[in-house]
């Protein structure tokens, strides 16, 4: 029997990791989690009195988990084109995410200072804002490119 070299094993493991996808059912699970988390963000002000930071944090994490599950779940029919489109969408989302993280603080600063003289100070975006932006761009780009072929 032919033995695999260490580099071949490493390559196989690496390829498995890159191609790791959850079953299609997780797409629905992710959608349900994301919708519930999104709705809970609106309901927070009505339902929770006093300190709602923990509730807000859980809602945000749930929304990220929901979108991530949708992002890494397989389609009903997974083939080489869907794989290629998915990889393109991750690349596109990454580039836009970096640009967004670099530019948005200045946009926020400029707008807030243009509207009122004592506007906000320059501050970086939070991790939630960047991650949600990247996940949404990835999902939109992927589904749009799949629809238009």
């Amino acid at each position: 029997m032919k033995k695999k070299s260490i580099s071949e094993c490493e390559r196989d493991q690496f390829n498995k990791l890159i191609k790791l996808r959850l079953p299609n059912a997780f797409k629905t699970v992710g959608l349900i989690i994301a919708v519930l988390a999104f709705l809970s963000m609106f309901g927070r002000k009505l339902l929770i009195e006093g300190d709602a930071e923990l509730y807000k944090s859980i809602s945000r994490q749930a929304l990220l988990i929901g979108l991530l599950l949708m992002s890494i779940s397989k389609d009903k029919i997974e083939d080489e084109m869907t794989y290629s489109l998915r990889m393109q969408s991750y690349g596109f989302a990454f580039i836009l995410g970096v640009l967004y993280a670099m530019m948005m603080p200045y946009v926020d600063y400029g707008v807030s200072n243009a509207l009122k003289p004592e506007g906000e100070t320059l501050k970086n975006l939070g991790d939630f804002q960047i991650l949600i932006f990247m996940l949404m761009i990835q999902l939109m780009f992927y589904h749009t490119s799949k629809r238009i072929g």
Binding site: D75, I77, D79, E80, M81, T82, K146, G149
Partner: peptide
């Protein structure tokens, strides 16, 4: 050939 209809169309 085990792909989606959209792939053939594309």
């Amino acid at each position: 050939i085990g792909v989606s209809r959209q792939t053939i169309n594309s």
